[in-house]
Design a binder for these strands. Structure first.
Length: 361
DNA sequence: AAATTGCATGTTGTG
DNA sequence: ACAACATGCAATTTA
């Protein structure tokens, strides 16, 4: 490896990253590949979100481009290296699985640690080949073409990236031609992945630090997902504010069909004493989540979607019917088809309710 | 021989 | 149907 080559590459990269917010505003993709950029498209993180915006968690506000960012994108002169035409880069549709899932709290802490505003860009779930000894990590195409400096040659460029502790890292950002497209890879990540003890299924996160436009690499372990945190909290009886999924009474059925990732099955990993995998769609989950009958809900609107908000966690139970002004909930037994009344949350596990006239299998 | 690189191919996800 | 991408593997380089 030639030191001079690395130095020059880094210098070029820094230039492009500094002058373009976020990370390049022009198209330098050439060759016989498809032209995917359009005139006057303004990079804007809000556009990177999936079309179906009925998210179950709030994306941090900082992921949305500010007016000043838009102005920078519009106003900044095109000083890109190796650019062939003054065409702005288009914000590509970024898959929901690559959207940053950092919480507001984590983001605040990270911003505090780095003493700068941190903008989450995207994340990547580590695969076996990502964490393998080859030390090369495949990056999602739409994400890098939105946020990374454009590269025109397969050889790519060296990128200087800081990790969340401020450690400077140098990775090679390049691509492999693939059919008429590209596979983007980050090379030289093995040592960092090893040092962070990352494993298959963990998430590598890419963020931008403002001011300075520096790329920040971080990670999130799969074993402490927010779903698990919630489940553990529920199992310990902790009182925490949470959102119940909207029910028929609140959200029209039609709206719920465009829930985030509604086409795919959802897996809820409960990592307590033993591991249990539940595979449900969000719609199927609706039938098992019920508000505690003893508490009132607040109606909140998030991004034009209505949610019921409860202080208490929902009851996970078979779907039933509510009568007498929602004070009584009745459910039908799977085995004997008898209807039983659920009187109170405290009585949920009572002997009477658990008993059934149907023969045991 | 072992390690690395670059690409091809099969699988999966998405519009 | 097509694009994205995970990974296998042949070719090349290095020790």
């Amino acid at each position: 490896m030639k030191v001079r080559e690395i130095y020059e590459s880094l210098a070029r990269t820094n230039l492009s990253m500094t002058l373009n917010t976020p990370f390049g505003n022009s198209n330098s993709f050439g060759g016989g590949e498809k032209q995917q950029q359009t005139e006057n498209s303004i990079p804007n993180l809000s556009e990177a979100q999936p079309k179906s915006q009925n998210l179950l968690h709030k994306l941090p506000k900082s992921t949305l481009a500010t007016e000043s960012e838009k102005n920078v994108c519009l106003a900044s002169p095109i000083h890109h290296v190796a650019r062939k035409s003054p065409v702005r880069r288009q914000r590509k549709h970024i898959s929901a699985r690559n959207l940053p899932k950092i919480t507001d709290q984590e983001l605040q802490q990270l911003s505090g640690d780095l003493n700068s505003a941190v903008v989450p860009l995207f994340e990547k779930t580590l695969t076996a080949s990502d964490v393998g000894r080859l030390g090369r990590m495949v990056l999602p195409k739409s994400c890098v073409e939105t946020y990374f400096p454009p590269i025109s040659e397969p050889g790519g460029v060296y990128l200087q990236i800081e990790d969340v502790k401020g450690k400077k890292l140098v990775f090679k950002f390049r691509f492999w031609p693939n059919n008429s497209s590209r596979i983007y890879v980050l090379e030289g990540v093995h040592a960092w992945i090893q040092s962070m003890q990352l494993q298959v299924g963990d998430f590598v996160t890419f963020n931008r630090m403002d001011p300075g436009e520096k790329l920040i690499i971080g990670f999130r372990r799969a074993s402490v997902s927010s779903i698990q945190v919630n489940n553990i909290a529920m199992s310990k009886g902790m009182k925490r504010k949470r959102l119940c999924l909207p029910q028929e009474l609140v959200v029209p059925k039609k709206k719920r069909t465009c829930d985030i990732e509604s086409k795919r099955n959802k897996s809820l990993l409960i990592d307590n004493q033993e591991t249990l995998m539940l595979k449900l769609t969000w719609e199927e989950a609706q039938d098992f989540l019920h508000p505690p009958p003893t508490v009132n809900s607040n109606i909140v609107v998030i991004e034009d979607h209505v949610f019921e908000e409860y202080e208490e966690p929902p009851i996970i139970a078979k779907k039933g019917i509510f009568i007498n002004g929602m004070k009584e909930q009745w459910i039908q037994c799977d085995k004997c088809s008898e209807w039983r009344k659920l009187e109170s949350v405290e009585n949920l596990w009572g002997q009477r309710r658990c008993s059934c006239s149907a023969p045991m299998n």
